[in-house]
């Protein structure tokens, strides 16, 4: 089994007004073919930067160190032209906000045809027919009408289905879904989650799903990677990480999942404190300031990611005796 995505010591640095901002630091992570990886973390944890880097869609102010290998090809040793050829052919993405992800003045059908621009040997009517069939597959009734409509005539849930259909149309080896349900209401969110699970067969099953919802991870993912302040703190199979969370941050995140709270309470638990700024990082463990199990050593020594059971964890309580 070769990895579909292999991140090796990936760091992403933005050129800020007051010097460089290291948003992501030293992330090493691999996704085996056919598995769904949940990328979890708070706002500002660098998860969106990381998926933008996988798509080579970072803004010009960002630079990437380390290697991102997609299906055996080092993404950043390729030219821009070759990278562009990978997008929309080998990898596709579903964006965070279905309300702005589609062009407001172009018909749905025309947009779905455009998404297939890299597919060889297909005429425009054939692409439109494929688009209609795919809309039907993602559970949209009356696809012929929908193809002729504009995005504003569709609800948010329908638009996200259209976006997912668009991504599936190019049969990518890797599907990247960046918080695909954040902008949707709870019932629509469930429908979209179900849809992604049903559709995993279409993409060899390799999906990177960005989310901040541990419940979604539990329902949908095979692997999970927890990012904190731009660093990977724990990663492993979902069963292992969710049932035996070893990093205090993972435990804190799980404690915040409303579905896991057994005792009735008037307050939703939160992780106290805030994420440290990437320009003012502490010397030791990045989570030390908010950690409930903090030791004196944690403020001085930076924990390295090391194997623990089926997972990898960056915590001195786990790695140090």
């Amino acid at each position: 089994m070769t990895a579909i995505v292999d991140l090796r010591d990936v760091s992403i640095t933005y050129a800020g007004a007051h010097g460089p901002v290291p948003a992501v630091r030293g992330v090493t992570l691999a996704l085996e073919r056919g598995r769904i990886l949940g990328l979890v973390g708070e706002s500002g944890s660098g998860k969106s930067s990381l998926v933008s880097a996988m798509l080579a869609l970072l803004p010009k102010s960002a630079s990437v160190q380390g290697r991102i290998v997609l299906d055996g090809r080092d993404l950043y040793s390729l030219g821009e032209h070759e990278r562009r050829a990978l997008r929309g052919r080998e990898m596709a993405t579903v964006s965070q906000d279905p309300f702005t992800a589609l062009n407001p003045v172009v018909r749905i059908g025309t947009q779905l045809v455009e998404f297939q621009h890299a597919l060889p040997n297909l005429t425009k009517p054939e692409k439109l027919r494929r688009a209609g069939a795919m809309l039907e597959r993602v559970g949209i009734a009356d696809p012929a009408t929908r193809l002729n409509q504009y995005p504003h005539q569709l609800s948010g849930g329908l638009r996200q289905r259209v976006a997912i259909a668009g991504a599936l149309l190019v049969s990518p080896k890797l599907l990247i879904a960046d918080e695909p349900t954040t902008a949707l209401d709870a019932t629509t969110e469930m429908e979209v989650i179900e849809l992604i699970r049903d559709m995993r067969g279409e993409v060899d099953g390799s999906i990177v799903l960005v989310t901040h919802d541990m419940g979604v991870v539990g329902r949908l993912c095979d692997d999970v990677a927890v990012l904190y302040a731009g660093e990977l703190v724990e990663s492993g199979p979902v069963d292992d990480v969710l049932n035996r969370p070893r990093h205090p941050y993972t435990r804190a995140l799980l404690a915040c999942d409303p579905a896991r709270i057994d005792t009735p309470s008037r307050h939703l638990p939160t992780v106290p404190g805030t994420v440290p700024s990437p320009t003012a990082l502490p010397a030791g463990c990045i989570f030390a300031a908010r950690c409930q199990d903090v030791m004196a050593l944690c403020h001085e020594v930076k924990p390295l990611l090391s194997a623990a059971g089926a997972s990898r964890v960056a915590c001195l309580r786990v790695s140090a005796p």
Binding site: R87, S95, T100, E114, F115, A118
Partner: peptide
């Protein structure tokens, strides 16, 4: 955001600008 969608599907900058951004 929708311009980013087209870039994510590998559509060329020229085509994005003229076909999908200019009408708006």
């Amino acid at each position: 955001n929708h311009i980013r969608t087209y870039r994510a599907f590998g559509v060329s900058d020229m085509r994005i600008t003229l076909r999908f951004a200019l009408p708006i």
